[in-house]
Design a protein around this nucleic acid. Sequence first.
DNA 1: ATAACATTACACCTTATGGTGTAATGTATT
DNA 2: AATACATTACACCATAAGGTGTAATGTTAT
Lengths: 110, 110
Amino acid sequence: MYSMEQLTHVLSAISHPTRRAIIKRLANGPAGFLDLAEPFDVALNAVTKHLKLLERAGLIEREKQGREVLISLRPEALRLVSVWVHEYERFWSEKLDRFAGYFKQQNRSK
Amino acid sequence: MYSMEQLTHVLSAISHPTRRAIIKRLANGPAGFLDLAEPFDVALNAVTKHLKLLERAGLIEREKQGREVLISLRPEALRLVSVWVHEYERFWSEKLDRFAGYFKQQNRSK
DNA sequence: ATAACATTACACCTTATGGTGTAATGTATT
DNA sequence: AATACATTACACCATAAGGTGTAATGTTAT
């Protein structure tokens, strides 16, 4: 399956705080490069590198408009993550179920 | 917020295929080190390192039993991921909504 | 006590990240 | 045509990942 590699790329992309912040920012709509980079205390260079990793993961799209670049989010890429983690959600809800069951038992015996 | 660091650790932990496979394996229940390492085509050394990253993320627990080590999953650690990605789930469902709305529109004008 | 076993530590190598500064590229403006 | 601007490329550095082989540690068995 080649989507495993994609999942790997998405997960490593979102594993960096700055890139998660970029995603959050883009969730409000597309942004130009400089606007996007402004809140981060790193050189523009570094931002470009982050964008490359986000792009590799399919999380963003760059659209060249004249001499500026418009960056927009492609949130569907996160779906892989959602699906993957969903497999494990039953584990903590099962635990909660057992927990709830325990107290039900306790109350019954009162 | 200090859970951001934890989220970072969890995300980088699950960003490697081998570690995701380890998690999958442990989802069926605890396993000894050698059993756990067996399916992977790397030296035991490498497995130990993966386990360290998983442990740093709070995703596994090691319990020393005599000269063997029992490793078990702590799936609650994945909850951070679930919560994080949940923030963005609305984006693709919104898109689906718009998509559905578009076709509703199309059918209406027939 | 010694030998076998399970796991980790240590030293080492290669590659990827994350950052920097400076040059290069391609547009826009004057 | 010259200049300013937005973005990236390039060269570089430090650190972390991911892997190896070999030694060290702690347990169990003989």
